[in-house]
Design a binder for these strands. Sequence first.
DNA 1: ATAATAGTGTCTCTCAGACAGTATAGC
DNA 2: GCTATACTGTCTGAGAGACACTATTAT
Lengths: 231, 231
Amino acid sequence: MSSAEVLASVDIVALRLNPGHGLELLLIRRAQEPFAGQWALPGVLVNGRSADHSLDDAAVRALRDKARLEPAYIEQVATVGNAVRDPRGWSLSVFYLVLVGPDTRVEDDDLDFVPLRDVRSERFALPFDHAQLVQQACERLASKSVYSALPLFLLAPRFTVAEALKAFECAIGQEVQHSSLRGRLERMKEAGWVEDTGERQRPPMGRPQHVLHFTPKPGGAFVFDRSLLAS
Amino acid sequence: MSSAEVLASVDIVALRLNPGHGLELLLIRRAQEPFAGQWALPGVLVNGRSADHSLDDAAVRALRDKARLEPAYIEQVATVGNAVRDPRGWSLSVFYLVLVGPDTRVEDDDLDFVPLRDVRSERFALPFDHAQLVQQACERLASKSVYSALPLFLLAPRFTVAEALKAFECAIGQEVQHSSLRGRLERMKEAGWVEDTGERQRPPMGRPQHVLHFTPKPGGAFVFDRSLLAS
DNA sequence: ATAATAGTGTCTCTCAGACAGTATAGC
DNA sequence: GCTATACTGTCTGAGAGACACTATTAT
């Protein structure tokens, strides 16, 4: 029976928006072999002994146990499996995209958020095929961000248009017209996803900005019927 | 080591378009326990002994070995895993959406295409959580069909607008304006995905129809920048 | 001629893109 | 006053929805 089974893990690609430096990726220093001591994606093994009711539960548990983080958004991206990705043999990884708020902090020395740019430019090497998992998760984020309000999960519940613009641009990797975003936020107001708090926030210079409030609803992000950057 | 591993399978939700009866689902009569003799999704176990280089290879192999079918389109949908879906214990299933051409036939007595409606209406019960996998795969097909040309993979390479319309309507589950579809096909012609063969086909009644030709390109279906049925 | 099906044309509406113009803050 | 940032308004164009109209076949 044992030979009919396979090594399987759940791995997390958790992203945080740093207003100054763009997107950052949560990494953990591995405690066990293989690759002990190296920075890698947080994850857990799943098997019959797991207390988890489901894979999604395992993903949330991984995030909670390893990093004491609660996801603002979580979505299964895909599963990779082959004979070479893990030195221990044929293995599977079900990996998740997680978005957390910008004020998320980690206190542990074995945890850190590092600039996504460094990871994707190969200047920060990851073990296993984790770089590829990050790549796929980011592509998912980018492709969904052109037709949904997914990047809002990278913000605090109270946010400004400028912050939302930054989140969309980082998620998509391209400049976005603020007037297009305003139109979309207007439509979200009508649908009850976003409301104007009436308050203002003063930037260091210039006119004060409206403070909006984002209320997530179960079932994922708000979906628009057109794509951004369609030209 | 054995207890760190888990039972994992790849399951296939393969769909065929029957012009008269809508979408049909490929089922296989299970040869082994559990649920031996019952109709279920075709699938294979994946583990260290598999010859497969990757999960996607395993999916194609499952389809080829069990049903002697080649996919016109294949896409990983998701992975489900929990303690209750298989009586043998905690297990994983990576499941795929597969589209095949309308002239696809199966000769084996242990293989059959059955109306998708029967499966989804619970009139045709499936073992494990296969009904749920079918449901998720169909949702994926429907949601992608509103902004891409995915349903064209349900057609023969040479097709008519009427056939394409039927494919879109079955995939989405809603009526589609033929003029919208014509516009989309026009854009695909400009992009080199579709060409007018110049030939005509005579229906039993009415004006002859243009015969178009669909040339798939690697990397999935053609993507439009708007959604159908956005009202 | 009539029915049936294929295909074209037209009008409206929504919304992204682009960018000009206005408003409100600090200095 | 000047600059920086926030916000509004206007114009354009693409494309979906709806539907009328024309075209081409069989009977």
